[in-house]
C-alpha cells in the first residue's frame, strides 16, 4: 500500500518536472527527438514514456520556449532538432530560482 502511494507520487513528480528537465538539457545544446529522450534518460535515470515526450515538445514549442528545424540526413530521413529560444532561457532561469527556493523550503522540514 505504502509502495503504491510512493510510486504514484514519484511518477507524478517526474511528470511535473519533465518540462524543467528537458529545458535544462536543451540549454547547452540542440538535440533531435530520439537523442533528447536518450540524453534525459541517461542524465537523470528517469524512464520517460516516449509517447509523452512528443506532446510535451509540442506544448513547449507552442508556448515559445523551444523551436525546431528539420535537418536533412544522408539516410534520407531528416532529424528534427530542438533548441531553446530566448523566451525559453528566461523561463528556465525563473524555474531554476523557484526550484532552488522550493527545495530549500522542503529541506527545512526534514
Amino acid at each position: 500500500m505504502d509502495n503504491v502511494f510512493v510510486n504514484k507520487w514519484s511518477s507524478q513528480l517526474k511528470k511535473g518536472t519533465l518540462s524543467f528537465i528537458v529545458l535544462n538539457v536543451l540549454k547547452d545544446n540542440e538535440y533531435y527527438g530520439y537523442e533528447l529522450i536518450e540524453k534525459v534518460k541517461h542524465d537523470t535515470k528517469i524512464e520517460i514514456a516516449e509517447g509523452t515526450f512528443y506532446p510535451l515538445m509540442n506544448r513547449l514549442k507552442k508556448d515559445g520556449f523551444v523551436e525546431s528545424n528539420w535537418v536533412e540526413q544522408k539516410s534520407g530521413i531528416p532529424r528534427k532538432y530542438y533548441k531553446l529560444t530566448k523566451q525559453g532561457e528566461v523561463i528556465l532561469v525563473k524555474m531554476k530560482d523557484y526550484w532552488i527556493s522550493m527545495s530549500a523550503t522542503i529541506q527545512k522540514l526534514f
Partner: peptide, 20 residues
C-alpha cells in the same frame, strides 16, 4: 511499444494543433 499506441499518445498533440 515505448512510443505507445498512436491513438493514445498523439491525441494531446492532435487536440492542441486542431485548436490552433
Amino acid at each position: 511499444e515505448n512510443l505507445g499506441l498512436p491513438e493514445e499518445f498523439l491525441i494531446p498533440v492532435v487536440a492542441e494543433k486542431k485548436l490552433i
